[in-house]
Computed example of a mutant assay.
Amino acid sequence: MYILVTNDDGVQSPGLLALRQALDTVGETVVVAPERNWSAASAARTLFDPLRIDPVPMADGRQAFVCSGTPGDCVALALLGFLELRPDLVVSGINIGPNLGNDVSYSGTVAAAREGAMMGVPAIAVSLDGRRHDDFKPAAAYAARLAQAAVRHGLTPEVVLNVNVPRGPIRGVLVTRLGRRIYRDELIVRHDPRGRPYYWLGGGEPEGELTEGTDTAAVAHGYISVTPIHFDLTDQRWLERLQHWRLDV
């Protein structure tokens, strides 16, 4: 198995290193990751500026490749020809912090995996409900097991497996649907020495509705959630409703 490993926290993230080391036990890995943190960049792509990729050592001394662009750029460049071999799987993570529910619309971690899937390579996104100092080994070990299962059972690029691992003891694994995150965003206004305003988008940690069967509930109760997500955002109910709106020109 040949695995492309990437993330959105940057090439020196401890989560990326732990993920690669775990995936090394199941296949050959190559890392192409962004040079800086692109959290909440979603599926941003660089279209009007040149991109660069350079070799760089990771914390364990092994070579990775650092890209000047977004997480999506990293995967696109890798699959469009930077890599001589086409990967069998793309694995993105381990993100520092969860990507639950509607987080997937913002997540650069998930976007990198989706880029792989859109280009025809099965993909997994892995996130940890923790912080930079946390132990990533349990999440990495599970990602390696899931990678093996994905290839063995024929995961297709029609879906991305979005994996979230709880902090603390893990009670098990649940296959879930996306839940709903509750954001507590606020606009923070400050002023520079000349009196001009500048702004921070801040707020407390988001919470999640704990509806049974959702990823938000699973992680809150100590379970790893595995959620298959796909690209068809069509609301099937509204397809029928809109037929009655008399939208003809």
Rank of each mutant, 00 (worst) to 15 (best):
M1F: 10
M1K: 12
L4T: 07
V5A: 09
V5K: 05
N7P: 03
D8A: 14
D8F: 02
V11S: 06
S13D: 15
S13G: 13
P14F: 09
L16T: 10
L16Q: 02
L19E: 01
R20A: 10
A22L: 03
L23R: 06
L23C: 05
V26S: 03
G27Q: 10
T29F: 05
W38M: 09
A40G: 04
S42M: 01
A43I: 01
A43N: 14
A44P: 04
T46G: 05
L47N: 08
L47R: 14
F48T: 14
P50M: 08
L51A: 11
L51E: 11
L51W: 07
I53C: 11
A59W: 01
G61I: 11
A64Q: 03
F65S: 01
V66N: 07
C67T: 00
S68E: 05
G72C: 14
L77K: 06
A78P: 04
A78R: 00
L80P: 04
G81T: 06
L83D: 09
L85T: 13
L85M: 13
R86Y: 04
P87C: 10
V90Y: 02
V90F: 04
G93Y: 00
I94F: 10
P98N: 00
N99Y: 03
D103M: 13
Y106D: 12
S107L: 00
S107E: 03
G108E: 05
G108S: 10
A111T: 00
E115N: 05
E115T: 15
G116S: 11
A117I: 04
A117K: 08
V121K: 09
V121H: 08
A123W: 03
I124T: 02
L128D: 00
D129E: 11
R131M: 13
R132I: 15
H133I: 07
H133Y: 07
D135R: 12
A139Y: 03
A139N: 04
A140T: 02
A140W: 06
Y142G: 12
A143E: 08
A144K: 06
A144D: 09
Q148I: 14
H153R: 14
P157A: 03
E158R: 12
V159R: 10
V160C: 12
V160I: 14
V160D: 02
N164S: 14
P166Y: 00
R167Q: 12
R167L: 07
G172C: 02
V173Q: 08
L174W: 07
L174S: 08
V175Y: 12
T176Y: 06
R177K: 15
L178T: 02
G179K: 09
I182T: 15
I182K: 14
Y183H: 13
L187G: 01
R190F: 02
H191E: 14
D192V: 05
D192T: 07
R196M: 12
R196K: 10
P197L: 05
P197M: 09
Y198M: 06
L201E: 08
G202V: 05
G204L: 00
E205A: 14
E205L: 11
E209P: 02
E212S: 12
E212P: 01
T216N: 11
H221Q: 15
H221C: 04
G222M: 04
G222K: 01
Y223H: 10
I224M: 03
I224W: 12
V226Y: 06
P228C: 05
I229A: 04
H230L: 03
L233P: 02
R237G: 08
R237Q: 08
W238P: 07
L239M: 13
E240R: 15
R241P: 01
H244C: 04
W245S: 11
R246H: 15
D248H: 12
D248I: 00
